[in-house]
Amino acid sequence: MIWDWHFAGSILPDLLRGLVVTVEATLLGYAVALGLGLVWAILRRSPSRIVGQVVRWVVEFIRSTPLLVQLFFLFFALPATGLTLSALVTGVLGLGLHYSAYTSEVYRAGIADVPVGQWEAATALNLPRRRVWAGVVLPQAVRKVIPTLANYLIAMFKDSPLLLAITVPEMLHSAYAVGAKSLRFLEPMTIVGVLFVIVSVLSSFLLRRLEFRYGNN
């Protein structure tokens, strides 16, 4: 069996539609990861030791178990509790939850990097806790870790094919469907691989620009 350009061209629209779903799921999941990760990071700084430790182990647990298992867990266990979500929403939540464990570590490093003097100044000025975080600490902490956070966007993009396991019609899913119908797997699988490399390489160029902009200050 050799490569058939005509066939490859005819399946491209299907695969690109899959790519749109993949990108959608990645971006939405990323938003969840950014928000939830920040929550974890702030909770770990909570004055209560118990809250801090519990959050630490929850994050450790999420981080050291496979995304695929977590996706299945959400997909099958949530309906059992009466909460029925579409496959895509479950996938977005799963991706976001998994990567929130990583982003929380990134935020934590950024927060730890804020000089102690800033905290002390905030206390001396008698700022309320909310303003200490929102006005003083986070703007400095987050700015520094933007390139690292962006790294996880690429990582998430590459984990998004796992969503096919819970029937989200993303790119690899479309490729498999096309292959199963025509019994030609070579073209769809190769195109998907190439598309992944193209998007990843492009985004790592963008990432380098980000690093250049935010990295050295």
């Binding site: 094919p161 498999y176 030609r184 797997f185 070579l186 998907v192 691989g193 992944f196 490399v197 390489v201």
Partner: peptide
């Protein structure tokens, strides 16, 4: 750049052909 799963599918489904 490629996802592990894509690579695995490629080895498993595409290369045998």
């Amino acid at each position: 750049g490629t996802a592990t799963l894509v690579l695995m599918y490629w080895f498993f489904y595409a290369l045998p052909l």
